[in-house]
Amino acid sequence: MARTVASGYDVVTVTGDPEERGYQYGLAARTRIELALRTYADVFMHYASWDWATVRRHGLRFADPIEDFSPASAREIRGIARGAGVEVADILALNTRSEIMFAAPGRLRAVAASECTSFALTPERTASGVPLMGQNWDWIEGARETAVVLQVRRDDGPDFVTVVEAGMLAKVGINSSGVGLCTNTLISDGDEGRPGVPYHVLLRSVLDSDSGAEAAARIKSTSRANSANYLIADASGFCMDVETGPGDGACGEITPVDGAITHANHFLVGGLTGVDRYLERKAHTRKRLHHLTARLQQHRTHTIESLQEALADHADAPDSVCQHPDVAQPTAERTCTVAGIIMDLSDRSLMYASGSPCESTWSLPVRIDASS
């Protein structure tokens, strides 16, 4: 186990079998996990008047679906709890917080609508001739204090690196097979936190995959707890955006147009929801998609630097691609860009800006040794 600090976020490296990896992760990130638990306790109390015992009880509903879908992930969750010195129910609650929010009283669903904007470029659209992808991960301000960069080295699947809230299995990331993952919240009129495979467990399944096609097939064939958008690409040239509703119904597939895919927080494929609840509440998702798409259209080919600039876009601020916390809002309601992330799929590397990309220093590339 290794723990270092770069660009403001702890970098935690773990090895071993699932439970040992989880234990190392929980031990190294213990302080941030404890802070994450306090942060979400405040969020649920603020929006729903739910105490943490109630939140944990709802999280336990997903223990069996996780075990059935990925016994290794279930073991890892148990290991994280042991390393962090907390209950398994606490780590389950962190990893299913999206589903619990949809099961809670209506006002809490508003905070579930995080503002993420993502992209993928095929080789003909990059100056280096390799596939690049990335996004701004936007969420509650408290996540800036709990985010970590998790590097996993293992024998039971591809190694990977992910930028994620401490104690959670995965978020945005890339693995040693060259599979990259970006993601966006979607909210359909069918989302109610139903029993099923949780969103963050499905995100982890992408980084467990040996190819983009395998990852996409796994998402599409699973009974999902909530709607979500999964932008998946790999070093071989696979590039697909998968929009999903809850359950095991049909999914939407979006492929590159002129070598690019961009996505925000509304459905682009018809027929997946009766009412797009995110779009209904936060129409600026269309503006963010427009501005990121326009940025990518400014140049035929892009460099890492031009993509960093695109993620720092402030058009239509404060509802812009690059977001800043509104200090006039109560702490539990402040959202902002937690991290900007860009991945080079051929290089198996990820770089990130901790906080808003316009004012943060980007990290050096975090590389995965494909032969490890």
Rank of each mutant, 00 (worst) to 15 (best):
M1L: 13
T4C: 11
S7T: 06
G8W: 01
Y9F: 14
V11Y: 03
G16D: 00
G16P: 01
G16Y: 04
P18A: 05
E19T: 15
R21Q: 10
Q24C: 07
Q24R: 09
L27R: 15
A28P: 06
R32E: 13
I33L: 06
H46T: 11
H46R: 07
Y47D: 08
A48R: 11
V55L: 01
R57Y: 06
E67L: 14
I77N: 09
R78G: 15
I80W: 04
R82Y: 04
V86G: 06
V86W: 08
E87Q: 15
A93Q: 05
A93Y: 01
S98R: 13
E99P: 01
P105C: 07
R107L: 14
A112Y: 07
E115P: 13
A120N: 03
A120F: 05
L121W: 05
E124A: 09
E124Y: 07
R125I: 02
S128K: 09
G129K: 02
V130R: 15
P131Y: 05
W137Q: 09
D138Y: 11
W139R: 08
I140P: 07
G142V: 08
A143W: 15
E145A: 15
T146E: 15
V149L: 09
L150A: 04
P158V: 00
M168Q: 02
M168L: 01
L169D: 00
V172G: 06
S176A: 12
G178P: 11
G180A: 06
C182D: 06
C182L: 04
T183D: 14
I187N: 09
I187S: 12
D189G: 10
G190W: 14
E192D: 14
R194E: 14
P195D: 08
L202I: 04
R204D: 08
S205I: 02
A213C: 08
E214D: 13
A215V: 02
R218W: 03
S221C: 12
T222D: 10
I232F: 08
A233W: 00
D234F: 03
F238Y: 03
C239N: 02
M240T: 10
V242R: 01
G245D: 04
G247W: 02
A250W: 11
C251S: 14
E253A: 11
I254H: 08
T255K: 13
V257Y: 12
H263V: 12
A264C: 15
L268W: 12
G274L: 07
H284V: 08
R286P: 05
L289M: 14
A294Q: 13
R295F: 06
T303D: 03
I304M: 14
D316C: 00
D316R: 02
Q323V: 04
P325R: 08
D326G: 05
V327L: 12
Q329I: 06
A332R: 10
R334V: 03
T335P: 09
T335I: 10
I342R: 00
D344Q: 08
Y352D: 00
Y352S: 00
S354M: 04
S354T: 13
S356N: 10
E359V: 14
W362P: 02
